[in-house]
Design a protein around this nucleic acid. Structure first.
Length: 974
RNA sequence: GCCGUCUUAGCUCAGUGGUAGAGCACUCGCUUCACACGCGAUAGGUCAGAAGUUCAAAUCUUCUAGACGGCACCA
């Protein structure tokens, strides 16, 4: 069969995903091995408002590589997808839509109607990212898709809330909170970011002291400095440090607060730093967290002068009532100035707290909210990481320490949000303001003795429900009298894909898949999500949410800054898929060192697009040369023992293959995806294509190909040491495709389907025991089964084939050494050709001199050396016997190589070439001599290191001597 | 202010004690019958700077410079 000349990713991408899905490959139930170990990953649920960005693509790639790898190893594998309801974001979208389309506010249509609109919005746009995951090739189990507001997950939220409340971990109270006046909701500390403002001002205000101090040259004023002058309308005291001589005499005196009719007291408090500013601080308990504490200590009035939309209220005074806070600031300053009470205004660089999402300046404000007391949960989290080492962060530095430090300083968590979209707080109030926390209104009413109740208006922080993700997604609801009630495997929501029925095992997902194996996410949500999931999962299930936590780096724009819409430096993954192919993009993302940031660079994806094309063409070549018999194939025992020059190359490539497979698995175990990619890239391109295939070309077309499959190991075909290049080629190729599959699912499936002899028989044992009747007997409905890409109605797929483990016993050191000698000879001959400017079309003789065992290697591989060095003949002997007009080189194993070049040689050039070679070798020898003459090194370094240097020095000596001889003979003879 | 990370070839990045690596770009050569998304051959780094530990440092320690991240504070 003939393949196209170049790989067309779109063609392959269009075909396989649906087929995999229909074969049921994404379900853990595809695994028929009752003893199979489970391997599970839950996706960090993307926001329903988002669309796929590079960070997702990176994390999804890693999760899919792990999932496919483990699946091929025979694990009962589950990657669970889902989405997060993203409270504020959705609410904002729907509010905007409502205003734009109907010019209405949420209050106009009411809570119930508004929620309907939210659900409609979510139905329409909420699966953008999750749908884009199909294009990525993500092997997630769509039947287990979850949404944080699914009934089951919502029940879990209520159960957790009720229990935390009953145990005293949740309380409602009046505190200074972070308030976003635009979103009109409270935010947790983690949702507030800082923005530096260079053009900030510090205003110095004079407060007239009611009883002017007569002594100590005291003035009639006390000067306070503030960046928020409008808050002075809510001042209820001025504080100074009790030991500050300047103000000591004023303590207890009062101030006629300007612009108001209020008198406030001058108090002493340690909080005030006498050295800082004027040493006097205005105290606004309702609008500043520190002032709040001062106020509590001194029993000050908490005067709220602002509304929740960022305007001033009546308490600020009639002329400020309803005025925007920033307008009010100007007005206050203006009035102070008019009254002669503005001491000065200084330029001042300030950092403002802003809402993470809308960048609105956050207002610290006194408000009644729900909080989680974090003491017990913090101890749970600390205990896990410090005693059990869970989670194990990858990379460990710096995350483990940052995480631990953060936990140690954990403050209470504000969990209520003044939104409608989300989990409404399961708390009800009676007419007298008594609160009843319950799983349902019914239960609350029982508790309230049947009184009329109203439910708390607010909803919970989205992260509260995300914090339960590791177990709520597996069916935990916390209901049914402490018994785990498991939601049926079917998603509460409409599944994104919709298998008709569901024949789950009797055991529950919770038992099967918790703890999950690894969490892959970004560092921005370690505190928001990772920590909370860790703590809540442990508290409510007794399990660890996950063992390992891979923290990916940030994909930066070409300018080295994080990608963002405002910077317009974003790169759309979908565009990259279109331009370079999904597989190439995946490999590029996997090639980034785990946890490292990287600047986006198209050129690097091109590398992997080229790699994909190389794999395609290597397969194309192998198929073209496989011969007609290759399709029928059995290992042909009769070929065993046949002595043939390709034997070395066969032994060598099988050795390299197994070495690569062993190291590849190790790299994946360590989450070193970049190492894995590098191993695959160099094995495939350098070893397999550049050397093995090129060497095999010197042979006549293969007689017969044999694909053998041994699920235990990367087994050489029966021809190891035999004559059938093509059989080895196809076997190695087939194995390489399996190793590549987790990274490049589409390309490898496309090619694997085309290899002769691949079949469902090659699936891992766990997938073979019976026809794959999974998840509702999908495959039994033949109408739904797409015919495979190639002949025969087979349900074969590389996805379920065995992942190569590598077999250390097949590593052949001798073959690798001998091959290195052959490669060296070819490279040195090529070097002479290139440096001497000899046309590729000129065939020259290559003389090789070496010890007898090395001579044998040359002799055994004569056709290959002839071909790849473009030589006409090899002359192999004990010592070189060539005309002086020859170019010479030294090889490993102290062999020498010469190319007689009568009439062609450029003496000057050859002398230069030799001199360069000698210089390089001499530099090395000088360095080694220096080390060896150092007695400390000889006595203290490990003996094997010293010995290795000695050997190398001896070798260098011979080589330098050889080249020097050649150089001097060239100089004499001209 | 506290904690931490990064600085390696023109570019983007690997490399945690024993002779500096990759891809791309550059230079030279190739219509070699899988691939020009290719093949072959070169060139290119005193591993930010300084000091120290060590027989041996890109790698460990300290300091300096620059870039950056997290947390805290910000009258």
């Amino acid at each position: 069969m003939e393949l196209a000349k170049a790989y067309d990713p779109k063609e392959a991408e269009s075909r396989h995903y649906e087929r995999w899905e229909q074969l049921g490959c994404f379900h853990p139930e595809v695994n028929k091995d009752a003893d199979a170990k489970a391997y599970s990953i839950v996706i960090p649920p993307p926001n329903v408002t988002g669309s796929l960005h590079m960070g997702h693509a990176l994390q999804h790639t890693i999760m899919d590589v792990l999932t496919r790898w483990k699946r091929m190893q025979g694990f009962r594998t589950l990657w669970l997808p889902g989405t997060d309801h993203a409270g504020i974001s959705v609410q904002r979208k729907v509010v905007e839509q409502l205003r734009a389309e109907e010019n209405k506010s949420p209050l106009d249509i009411g809570r119930e109607e508004f929620l309907k609109r939210c659900w409609a919005w979510k139905e329409e746009y909420g699966n953008t990212i999750i749908e884009q995951m199909r294009r990525e090739g993500a092997s997630v189990d769509w039947t287990r898709h979850r949404f944080t507001m699914d009934p089951g997950l919502s029940a879990a939220v209520r159960s957790v809330f009720v229990r935390l409340y009953e145990e005293g971990h949740i309380y409602r109270g009046l505190r200074i909170v972070n308030w976003c006046p635009k979103d009109k909701t409270v935010l947790s500390d983690l949702e507030v970011k800082e923005e530096t403002k260079k053009d900030g001002k510090l205003y110095y205000l004079r407060y007239p002291v009611s009883e002017p101090a007569a002594s100590a040259g005291g003035s009639d004023f006390i000067v306070v400095a503030t960046t928020r002058p409008e808050t002075m309308l809510g001042d209820t005291a001025v504080a100074v440090n009790g030991s500050d001589e300047r103000y000591k005499h004023l303590i207890g005196k009062t101030i006629a607060l300007p612009l108001t009719s209020r008198e406030i007291t001058i108090i002493a408090d340690e909080y005030v730093d006498a050295e800082f500013g004027t040493g006097a601080v205005k105290i606004t308990p309702a609008h500043d967290p520190n002032d709040y504490l001062v106020g509590e200590r001194h029993g000050l009035e908490q005067l709220l002068v602002m509304n929740m939309d960022g305007t001033m209220n009546a308490a600020a005074g009639a002329e400020f009532d309803g005025m925007d806070r920033f307008k009010a600031r100007e007005k206050v300053v203006e009035m102070f100035d008019e009254l002669g009470l503005l001491e000065k205004v200084e330029d001042y660089e300030i950092t403002l707290p802003v809402c993470e999402r809308c960048k609105t300046v956050v207002e610290p404000i006194l408000s009644e909210q729900w909080f989680v007391k974090m003491d017990e949960l913090r101890d749970i989290g600390l205990d896990l990481i410090e005693r059990e080492g869970v989670p194990r962060f990858v990379p460990e530095v710096p995350h483990a320490k940052v995480y631990t430090t953060w936990l140690e300083n954990l403050k209470d968590w504000t969990i209520s949000r003044q939104l409608w979209w989300g989990h409404q707080i399961p708390a009800w109030y009676d007419g007298e303001g008594n609160v009843y926390v319950a799983h349902s209104e019914e239960e609350a009413r029982e508790k309230a003795g049947g009184r009329e109740l109203t439910q708390d208006n607010d909803v919970l922080d989205t992260w509260f429900s995300s914090g339960l993700w590791a177990f709520s997604t597996f069916g935990w609801t916390g209901e049914a009298g402490g018994q785990l009630s498991v939601v049926s495997g079917q998603s509460d929501e409409k599944s994104v894909s919709s298998p008709a029925t569901d024949n789950r095992q009797p055991t529950t997902d919770l038992e099967n898949f918790l703890p999950t194996d690894v969490l892959v996410t970004g560092r921005d949500i370690i505190f928001l999500w990772v920590s909370r999931m860790m703590m809540l999962t442990k508290k409510f299930t007794g399990q660890t949410a996950f063992k390992d936590c891979v923290i990916t780096g940030t994909v930066l724009g070409k300018d080295g800054k994080p990608m963002s819409k405002s910077r317009k430096n974003g790169v759309d993954p979908i565009e990259m898929f279109d331009k370079f192919g999904v597989d190439a993009t995946r490999v590029y993302l996997a090639s980034i060192a785990t946890g490292a940031d990287i600047r986006w660079n198209d050129l690097l994806i091109e590398t992997y697009r080229n790699f994909a094309n190389k794999i395609w063409n290597a397969t194309r070549f192998s198929l073209m040369n496989a011969g007609p018999q290759a399709a029928s194939l059995q290992a042909d025992e009769s070929r065993l023992g046949a002595c043939d020059p390709t034997a070395l190359a066969d032994r060598w490539i099988i050795s390299r293959l197994n070495r690569t497979a062993l190291e590849l698995n190790k790299a994946l175990e360590r989450y070193e995806f970049h190492t894995a990619v590098s191993l695959l890239y160099h094995f495939f391109w350098d070893d397999f294509c550049d050397w093995y295939i090129e060497l095999s070309k010197s042979e006549p077309p293969a007689v017969a190909g044999g694909l053998t499959q041994d699920s235990e190991n990367v087994q050489p075909p029966a021809t190891a040491g035999g004559s059938d290049g093509s059989g080895v080629t196809l076997n190695v190729l087939e194995t390489a495709l399996r190793m590549l599959h987790p990274f490049m699912p589409y390309l490898t499936e496309e090619l694997w389907q085309k290899l002769p002899g691949t079949s469902a028989e090659m699936h891992h044992a766990a997938y073979k025991s019976e026809p794959p009747a999974v998840a509702g007997g999908l495959t039994q409905n033949s109408d739904n089964v797409q015919p495979p890409a190639t002949a025969g109605g087979s349900d074969k797929t590389i996805m379920l084939a065995d992942f190569p483990r590598g077999d250390a016993s097949l590593i052949d050191e001798a073959a690798e050494f001998e091959m290195s000698v052959v490669i060296d000879a070819i490279k040195k001959a090529r070097n002479i050709r290139a440096e001497m400017n000899i046309s590729p079309s000129v065939r020259f003789a290559v003389h090789l001199a070496a010890k007898s065992d090395v001579q044998r290697v040359f002799r055994d591989n004569e056709p290959q050396i002839l071909r790849l060095a473009r030589a006409e003949k090899l002359v192999i002997s004990d010592v070189l016997d060539v005309p002086k007009a020859s170019a010479k080189a030294v090889l490993t194993a102290n062999a020498t190589l010469a190319v007689p070049l009568e009439g062609l040689i450029d003496f000057a050039k050859e002398r230069e070439r030799l001199a360069n070679a000698i210089a390089k070798l001499s530099d090395e020898k000088t360095r080694l001599d220096g080390q060896l003459s150092n007695e400390n090194f000889v006595t203290r370094a490990p003996a094997e290191k010293v010995e290795a240097l000695r050997e190398r020095t001896a070798e260098l000596e011979i080589q330098i001597k050889t080249l020097n001889n050649n150089l001097s003979s060239l100089s004499i003879d001209q």
